[in-house]
Amino acid sequence: MDESTFQFFLSQSTREYAAEKVKSGAWDPDNALKLSQEAITRFLPSGLHTEGAYLYSVVHEDVEESIGYIWFNVTEGRGGREAFIYDIYIFEPYQGKGYGKLTMQALDEEASKMGVTKIGLHVFGQNTRAFELYKKMGYIITDISMSKELKLEEDRS
């Protein structure tokens, strides 16, 4: 990923993450963008040049244009080198055409070359398309958080 693509990625990823956190009920819409910027800065303190962070443009070979991106960090974990996917996004016109699966397969190959023995990720509960893809790619559920909205007595009348 080059610097101009990184700036686009940073803007889009920040907005998307904030929107997903609001949709999930975790963040208030008024503070979501600020919280999203803080979270991304925490994991990319030196931007594109953050040690251990890998940011790639997903490029369609036939037309040689970017169709998405993927960001993962590699760290030393209890069982060796571990990767964590912070963002994977295939642009809307290319979604549902197998590019997400191909991107995940390319990640497996790249991470394996890096000596990574485990890849983790987080998926929002409302993102069923991504959840189904990850299950097909061999990811297993390691933790589930759930919530339920209740109506207050005064709201029921």
Rank of each mutant, 00 (worst) to 15 (best):
G138I: 00
I144Q: 11
Y99F: 13
F124Y: 13
H60V: 06
L150N: 05
V58A: 14
F8N: 14
L107R: 07
I90S: 07
A39P: 00
L133V: 00
R42K: 15
M114G: 03
S24I: 12
Q105W: 00
E109P: 05
E51D: 04
Y94I: 00
K23C: 07
K151M: 14
K151N: 11
N73D: 11
Y86F: 13
Y139R: 11
F9I: 15
T103Q: 05
F84I: 07
Q7V: 01
T14F: 08
N73R: 09
K151Q: 14
F72Q: 04
E110R: 15
D108M: 14
A39D: 06
V116F: 02
E16H: 14
L55C: 01
K101T: 12
K113T: 12
F9T: 05
F6C: 04
K135V: 06
H122Q: 10
Y89R: 05
V63H: 11
S13R: 05
I88V: 12
L44I: 14
S11G: 02
V22M: 05
L107Q: 06
E64P: 01
G47F: 11
Y69F: 07
L107I: 09
Y86L: 05
R78P: 08
T117Q: 11
T117I: 11
M104N: 04
A26I: 00
N73H: 04
Y86H: 14
V74H: 05
I144V: 15
P29E: 11
A53S: 11
